[in-house]
Design a protein around this nucleic acid. Structure first.
Lengths: 110, 110
DNA sequence: TATTTTGGTATACTCGATGATACTGGTTAC
DNA sequence: GTAACCAGTATCATCGAGTATACCAAAATA
């Protein structure tokens, strides 16, 4: 149980590290919701800057969370799609949405 | 569905904001695991500094995530305990632990 | 008597995530 | 012809989360 607690802490911190900043999870959610084009994703997340989206998408591509596909017809079309690995985050994202809907008001009402 | 997506994004961002930095979730987990005393919590989270733990615990008390109880016998004893509100995070924390155990290796192996 | 433990506070600093703003080259609609 | 849209890149500035280190008084332990 002692050992168990250490393992769980490590798992927790790995996940938190992976989530990183403010944008990774909203981006994953947006792409999993069907948004594909750069500007489309950008518009779906009010407040994000082109710079941050660009940087995150690059990192996420490197980490195999999204696949970037270029269709070189004119005009060039770029599409981002979620990998299976990305979808393994589904539970966490859903748990966060649920919590946000149910309990955030506790603080707001305060 | 359009509206739905906006709501979910807001809920998601509220939760992410609430989680904040690196330490809040590990601290909640530690306290929910039965750690109560300041130094006990500190020792259960290798790497955290006294300053960060102190700051987080204050914020968490203000946000009703933990209850701070002082037993003024000599020596003074201070105890932190999780509120019911704190425990509403259980699902998120568990989902994070599960993900960390199951999928972090995908990246590590890479 | 000296060291360690408890529950923190104080001060100084760093550095990386994020924000703001501007720009590009190509395409298409008005 | 010009205005807007696409998919980004390039610079510069900021700011606060997190680190490092030292310190405190009281009590327990060796």
């Amino acid at each position: 149980m002692e050992r168990n607690q250490e393992d769980e802490l490590r798992a927790l911190q790995d996940t938190l590290y992976f989530i990183g900043g403010k944008w990774r999870i909203p981006i994953m959610n947006s792409i999993c919701n069907g948004n594909r084009r750069f500007r489309e994703i950008e518009r779906s997340i009010p407040g994000i800057t082109t710079r941050m989206l660009s940087k995150e998408l690059k990192d996420m591509e490197m980490n195999k969370l999204v696949k970037r596909t270029v269709y070189p017809d004119t005009p060039v079309l770029v599409e981002y799609s979620p990998t299976e690995y990305c979808r393994t985050f589904g539970n966490i994202i859903q748990a966060m949405i649920d919590w946000g809907k149910a309990y955030r008001k506790v603080v707001v009402e305060d």
